[in-house]
Design a protein around this nucleic acid. Sequence first.
DNA 1: AACTGATCCAACCGCCTTAAG
DNA 2: CCTTAAGGCGGTTGGATCAGT
Length: 205
Amino acid sequence: MELRKGAWTKEEDDLLRNCIEKHGEGRWHKIPLLAGLKRCRKSCRMRWLNYLKPDIKKGNFEDDEVDLMIRLRKLLGNRWSLIAGRLPGRTSNDVKNYWSARRRRNMESNIAKDRPQQITKTTIVRPRPRTFTKSLHIPNDNAVTSKNSNLNTSSPMVRVNGIESMEDLANFCVQDMDSIFATSLNVAEESFDFDLWQFLQEEMI
DNA sequence: AACTGATCCAACCGCCTTAAG
DNA sequence: CCTTAAGGCGGTTGGATCAGT
């Protein structure tokens, strides 16, 4: 059977929505058949998760969402789905698109200002350091912030009271992000991330 | 009004992980 | 173990829309 590609029609959306309401989310390999759609399972899943799902939040990112996104991105790297999981109603595609757009804009503005690597230090009010448990150990190899760190396999784990995985850490950080940034994670400060803080500050003025 | 470049974002693609047989 | 199918993810693309001239 020839699979359809490209933009989804309203009819296709309705078929998919009805099918998922009837049969539930998941089992994506069966959805095209059940819904009568000439789409592949991935396309159906993507359409549902990024567009049709009822709790999806549309519109511009609010300041606090951007703030949290920046912090989580710094912590987790390009783990868009994890980051999106901490932003209610936002999808990984939203987060990824937002980040790409901002990064592009930021890089271009730097080029335009003829200061490729030169960063003007700006006073930024960061979360205040607080006392952190002595058992905190974060490896010094940047594994936590590395783009390529694989959370499910052999990456060194962060050990903080009861935190066994990066997922736990991400949850923890939302509650106590201050502490994390006050300790070791800022050792890998990158100029790129610094620019984003600058961007955020400018945005809020 | 027409054109053009910039931006947005939905969608595709390829790869990785996991589970089942 | 190995293979295969399915789910999931991140990177990228390209069409639609917007903004500026």
